[in-house]
């Protein structure tokens, strides 16, 4: 029998992620795709902690911890250093959604505009988890967080980071999910072999932050795709949009929402609005993809 993803484990065990952490799985798959000829940089995020205390490290590739706003610029600098030495290394910025959608967006936009030869991965758990579940630009509409309590849940939609990055006309960007590791690893391998700025967004459930059961991490990540809440796509040069996972039987968003405590306060009307928004976003995406379904 052949395994559907590479057998070699680069990420080690003993790391400090919570039980069922999607971000830990995302790293496991990412390293399988990138291989050992990789250097990473983390801004402040859960992964700064998950990796373990100095001088120990769970990723087993060289790693540079950087400040919250500087993942992309740190990666650009590391890449320039390797270029000067004539070394060809995959340089990966690995950041959370807070470090990407919000505080790190200036550095990311700069690197993308220059088309610096780096891979930027955002593991998206839809809030500032490391500091105790504060709202981020990625937190979905009407979600609970500690800064958007149930009496005042988030009133703004999740920021469309994919369109923002596509507008930079970078050679490659893709979304991925920990529930579809084969798709994710194919995209990460493809990204590795492209020159220029590559942006990869990985949907990564966070059981404590989403008030969800750790055993449901894969279920939730799968439902996000099957309900069209998180479509799996690729965008080349900002212009060619492709859907990489076609959903034959679309599920209602309620199936995804009801497994998560962060949405427990929603009324039926709220769920209907979320369903409507999801349908509208899908139509807009289909226009870009140039498909009808």
């Amino acid at each position: 029998m052949k395994l559907s993803i590479p057998e070699e484990e680069i990420m080690g065990h003993g790391h400090l992620a919570c039980q069922g952490c999607g971000a830990a799985l995302a790293m496991r798959y990412a390293l399988k795709a990138f291989g050992r000829n990789t250097v990473m940089t983390f801004p402040a995020c859960c992964w700064s902690v998950i990796d373990g205390p100095f001088p120990h490290s769970a990723v087993n590739v060289p790693l540079f911890h950087t400040c919250f706003e500087a993942a992309a610029s740190t990666a650009s600098g590391i890449k320039a250093g390797f270029d000067a030495q004539g070394k060809d290394v995959n340089v990966v910025a690995w950041a959370g959604d807070g470090g990407t959608y919000d505080i790190g967006i200036q550095a990311l936009s700069g690197a993308a505009e220059r088309n610096d030869d780096i891979i930027y991965v955002c593991y998206d758990n839809e809030a500032y988890m490391n500091t105790g579940v504060q709202r981020s630009g990625s937190t979905p509409y009407l979600s609970w967080t500690t800064t958007t309590p149930v009496k005042h849940p988030k009133q703004r939609p999740k920021k469309d980071i994919v369109s923002i990055m596509a507008a930079h006309r970078i050679p490659y960007l893709a979304t991925a999910s920990v529930a579809f590791p084969e798709d994710m690893i194919t995209k990460f391998k493809k990204a590795k072999d492209i020159k220029g700025t590559r942006f990869l967004l990985v949907f990564s459930p966070c059981p404590p932050g989403w008030r969800a059961n750790p055993e449901n991490t894969i279920k939730l990540a799968k439902l996000a795709v099957l309900t069209r809440v998180f479509p799996l796509i690729e965008v080349e040069n900002g212009r060619v949009w492709k859907l990489t996972k076609k959903v034959r039987t679309v599920k209602p968003v309620s199936e995804y929402l009801k497994l998560q405590g962060r949405f427990r306060h929603l009324s039926e009307d709220d769920v209907a609005v979320i369903q409507e928004n999801t349908n509208k976003d899908w139509e807009i995406l289909m226009d870009k993809v140039g498909e009808k379904d």
């Binding site: 080690g12 065990h13 003993g14 400090l16 001088p55 120990h56 490290s57």
Partner: peptide, 26 residues
Amino acid sequence: VKIIFESIKDMPPLAVSLYTMDYNKT
């Protein structure tokens, strides 16, 4: 094994990773 530095002289000159997290029996 968990690495414990007895004194500053044992520390590497840079913040490098010397070992895995295998010591941490989760």
